[in-house]
Amino acid sequence: MSNYAKRREAEALERKQNNQKTALKALIIVAVLAILIGGGYYLKNKSSNKQNVATATGDPDYNIDDYVKLGKYEGVKVNSIKPEVTDETFENKKKSLMDAAVEYKDLKDRGVQKGDKVTIDFDGTMNGKAFDGGSGKDHEYVLGEGSMIKGFDEGLYGVKVGESKTLNLTFPKDYGKKELAGKDVVFEVTINKAQEVSYQPKWDDEFAKKSTDGEYSDIASYEKKVKEDLLSEAKQNSEDTLKNDVWEAVVANAKIDGHPDYVYNTVKQKVTANIQSTAQMYKMSTEDYLKLFAGGVSMKEYIEKFVNSQLVSEKLIKELKIEISDKEYDKLAKADLKTYGVKTVKELEESYGKDNLMNHYKAEKLYDYLVEKANVKEVTQAEYTKLKEAASKKNAKE
């Protein structure tokens, strides 16, 4: 397989994984998917739903009006990110493409140095005891790229394949995991394999031809294609972010007075199951998941967020009388086949349940309506980031 074919295959896999991540976030954030609408609907229809919630405790016959009083949901003010490809974005992508195109050959007769690709086994201990995430087998990476803590790579320079080295290091004071920040650690490292660069690409016509198997003969046309792909990604990100921000504003405007036990327990089951599934898929801890998807909030806060989201969704769908016709359902389900990695609507329903999918589409229809009615101001990515940081600091003080 050519380098270009390998890269295209890798990009396809990455897109599939990103689609799965996006889909998963949608399943959770939308909240109505795989949960319930209409007070215990799924409990009463569990035979038609493979992913039923029959084990949830609490009374499914509740009145949503007893728990939610809607605030302003039409015309909420939000900022929308202007889809654009900045010089920085392009340069980062350019570097990524060139790094992926670097070729290596097995290293002989010298110790490793910065820029070499190594495969290592490592075991870390703190006060003589192993710690979570401190060990790894056949870990492959490029020395000097900054993926390991300070002193790790430098300590391996000069070590040859088959040799081991003891590294006495200290985690940075601002390290992501608080229990490790600033702590002394000992790593026992063995280099199993090492390779040095045999081909270092340059951003030129040769790179365009070599990395695309001749699909692009000059760097100008290839660069244009790269920027078009980046703009497409920026547009999708803008749409997803706008929908999320509108929804957060609508939920924040609503007044929620408690929650039915049935809803809380059902949401807890589904959110917990999704976290465990995702954490296992991407080999991350629950703590890492919460940092990545939830800004580092506690599990309790995370669950409550989606309980509130569920209740407001249910109230609004009832208020606006949102329905999905059979024709709409069929069209939406077929459009989702590629996203969820299945070939037929039947397979999709077997994986998620038709009732769950129907409710998901109702929620999506609701969110599209809310975005259409929102008071939107377009800003740059840099402006959006500053506004978000300012809002975050303000909320922290309050």
Rank of each mutant, 00 (worst) to 15 (best):
M1C: 02
Y4W: 12
R8W: 04
E11N: 08
A12L: 13
E14C: 07
R15Y: 12
L24T: 13
A31C: 07
V32C: 05
L36M: 12
L36I: 10
G39V: 03
N45Y: 06
N49I: 14
Y67P: 12
L70K: 12
V78D: 05
S80F: 11
K82G: 00
V85D: 00
T86Y: 00
F90M: 14
R110Y: 12
R110P: 02
G115D: 00
T119Y: 03
N127S: 13
G128V: 15
K129L: 04
F131L: 04
S135R: 12
V142E: 15
L143H: 06
K150N: 09
G151A: 15
D153M: 07
V159D: 03
V159N: 05
T166D: 15
N168V: 12
P172L: 03
K177S: 05
L180W: 05
V186H: 02
V186G: 11
F187S: 00
T190F: 00
N192M: 14
E196T: 10
K209A: 12
E215L: 03
E228V: 14
D229P: 06
L230V: 06
K243N: 07
N244I: 10
D245E: 11
V246N: 00
W247C: 02
A252V: 02
A254K: 06
H259P: 11
D261H: 02
Q269Y: 10
M284E: 11
D288M: 11
D288C: 01
G295T: 03
G295Q: 10
V297E: 00
M299I: 05
K300Q: 13
E304N: 07
N308C: 09
Q310F: 06
V312F: 04
K315P: 07
K321S: 14
E323T: 10
D326G: 10
K331C: 04
Y340A: 01
K343D: 08
E349W: 01
Y352M: 11
N356D: 05
M358W: 08
K365Y: 04
E378T: 15
A382H: 05
A396E: 12
